[in-house]
Amino acid sequence: MADVGILAATKAAEQPVAALLDGPRGPKPVRRFSRSNIIIYGTLFVVALYYALPLYVMIVTSLKGMPEIRVGNIFAPPLEVTFQPWVKAWQEACTGINCDGLSRGFWNSFQILIPSVILSVAIASVNGYALSMWKFRGSEVFFTLLMIGAFIPYQVMLYPIVIMLREAGLYGSLTGLVLVHVAFGMPINTLLFRNYFASIPEELFKAARVDGAGFWAIFFRIMLPMSLPIFVVALIIQVTGIWNDFLFGVTFTSSPERYPMTVQLNNIVNSVQGVKEYNVNMAATLLTGLVPLVIYFASGKLFVRGIAAGAVKG
């Protein structure tokens, strides 16, 4: 019996050695510099360069003086870095009859952005929650009509909205512009929230209902804590769309004092008076796009997670 035990132990010890002698098993490791990898990374590099090159030109041009810009080498880094174009774009550039730069339009854009984002995301989240968890008779018809609104060109709706705001006494005010952004942001955000909430296990909802939780208790205590990624997606979509909007800003604001930043940027870039200051134009453009870029880079990972969870399910 002892010999049998020794023989079994010897065979068990020899098995790993035999496995090593036979060589490694499993899939063949992929070479780091294979032909397919070179093609993939090469393509990604070219695409990244294509999108980064204009941004590079804008940054270096905004840091040059006009004598250096007139030399004509737009790709060369600045010989003498100057931030005067940024200062002028912020507080001295003329946007029509006013020469106070983009500072006034910046705060106008903030007054438009904050309530528009809060209202549109809050209402859309409740809509998506109700359409996914508390379906009622005709809910699918309501959702279909809401989605149709997402595909109607904005230009078609301009004149009717102008009439409605005029009759309500809101035309030309920032409040009217906020309501327009809230209405036009509703369809796509409702779709995102509906699909995201539909991906949450229904057992959680049923268990909460059994425990006696109602509509708002389930929403605030169960759904909201699980919904940070999709809220970030809706936030980025709304901030980007509202902050970069030009059409609604120029249509529904009646005076230069209420113009958002994008309308002021258009007035600076397309000014036909005096010398064309390309460094100031580039600095003004970078200042205008700074807020969406900061928000996106600060929450990029959550944005990807929310898109994956809320855009392809439901």
Score class of each variant (00 low, 15 high):
G289I: 00
E203N: 13
G274V: 03
S299C: 03
R209P: 13
D211Y: 02
M261L: 15
R209Q: 15
P229V: 02
F215W: 11
T253G: 01
T262Q: 07
L204A: 01
V280A: 10
L286F: 07
N267H: 00
W216M: 12
V294L: 02
M282Q: 08
I268H: 15
S255I: 00
Q273D: 10
M282P: 01
N266R: 00
K276P: 03
T240M: 05
M261F: 00
L204G: 01
V294Y: 07
P260N: 02
S271A: 06
I268W: 10
N270R: 03
Q264W: 03
G289P: 04
P292K: 06
P225A: 12
M226R: 08
F246N: 08
S255Y: 00
W243Y: 05
N281T: 06
I230K: 04
I222Y: 15
G289M: 01
W243L: 07
L204F: 07
P225Y: 09
G289Y: 00
P225M: 14
Y278F: 12
L287M: 14
F220M: 13
R209I: 14
Q238F: 02
G274A: 04
G241A: 02
N279L: 00
I236R: 11
E202A: 13
L247F: 04
L204R: 02
D245P: 10
R209M: 15
T262E: 06
F252S: 12
P201K: 08
P292W: 01
E202M: 13
K206S: 06
V210A: 14
N279T: 09
T240L: 06
K206I: 03
S271D: 09
S299F: 01
L247G: 06
L224N: 10
I236S: 10
I230M: 07
P229H: 06
V210L: 15
F246Y: 06
L290G: 08
S255A: 13
F252Q: 12
N281S: 06
E257H: 03
T240A: 08
Y259H: 13
V291N: 08
Y259V: 13
I295E: 06
T288F: 03
A283R: 06
M226T: 05
Y296V: 09
P256T: 01
R209W: 11
E203I: 13
T288G: 05
A234Y: 07
R258H: 09
G241C: 00
I236L: 15
N279P: 07
V232W: 05
V263A: 05
R258D: 12
M261V: 15
Q273N: 09
V263Q: 03
T240D: 08
